[in-house]
Amino acid sequence: MARLADGLDEATKDFVCVRIIQMRGVDTSVFNFDFDLSWAGFFMNADMTVYGRYGSRRDQGDSQFSTAGLKEALARALEIHKGYPANKPSLASKNVKAPVPAKEPENMPGLKGMFQTPDIPKGCIHCHHVWKGIRRSVMAAKKPLPDSLLWVYPMPDTVGLTIDPADGARVSAVAAGSPAAKAGVQADDVVATVGGAPLVSIADFQFALQNAPDQGPLRIEVRRGSEKKAMTLALPAGWRRDADFSWRSSTGDIRIGMQLEPLADDERKAAGLKSGGIKVKAAWPKGPAGMAGFQPGDILTTVNGQAVPERETDFVAMIRQKYLPGQKLKIAVVRGGKRQELDMNVP
């Protein structure tokens, strides 16, 4: 019999709990979350209005998961439910329909034909497949991938806010010079609303950031003691790009068939580089890079004459934002101290 530990039984008793085991048939315009997660929760009304979300992960592991944080999120969601439907207008920004190429993953152009059998687990569509379906649909339409489909579901840290995962709304630190610092947020403030909607958890903040403009304002409200303060985060151009997305399993699809790793200073110097450059950690023999002749240990220096960045994240973004599938790449590499060029087409 299913039982929850650490008081979660009590915290969930006022909810109807359902576990969804895979994504086939799921409306991803409503159930839109960070699909690289292995545990994501939605708090919602029976009319499908979302009260809030739970589940966050950063590149350095899973420190955002917390039983205490989940209890807080459940309690906040229950309060929203008690005030529903009078408070429905305040939930508008939490219920933005995600711009997906098709509601159900199996109908996304990028996944057509991949999951024909309804048998489970043979035809099981995993959460991370949804990112693949969305990205492949954009690439199939011969369009570059936007920032919002590469640096997906940004953590609040991206705008300078560290939020205590055991609370889900309390600010534990503010990075100097960040949009949050410039807006006036302070440590120990409690984020009450983002985009006008009550904050339930860190995942709620991520949803608001996912739907925020590539440049522009994001309204928040914080509680400081007995005061409420309205603030505006001014998101600068490229604000998503500090994050690292290379840990995401879904990105295997947008790489060009190789795994990359940073260069040590002496390796960079030996390759004749002052900055930039990245090293091939693995090139799958039957993948596009392997077929083009790339080998582990190769140091990539330029792509079509443009310097290669130091992070794998930025290299993948460069390929997917500057080039379209089928376009030719001439990649300069240093192998065993000698420079050569390898040709390949963007997969």
Binding site: T12, D14, F15, V16, C17, V18, R19, I20, I21, M23, V26, F31, F33, L37, S38, W39, A40, G41, F42, F43, M44, N45, A46, M48, Y51, L74, A77, L78, I80, H81, C127
Partner: peptide, 20 residues
């Protein structure tokens, strides 16, 4: 999910939907 929605309507409870 439809069963959860039906029960939530019947019992006037919110839904916790977990994807895992």
């Amino acid at each position: 999910l439809p069963a959860a929605v039906a029960r939530a309507k019947r019992e006037n409870k919110p839904i916790l939907a977990v994807f895992r």
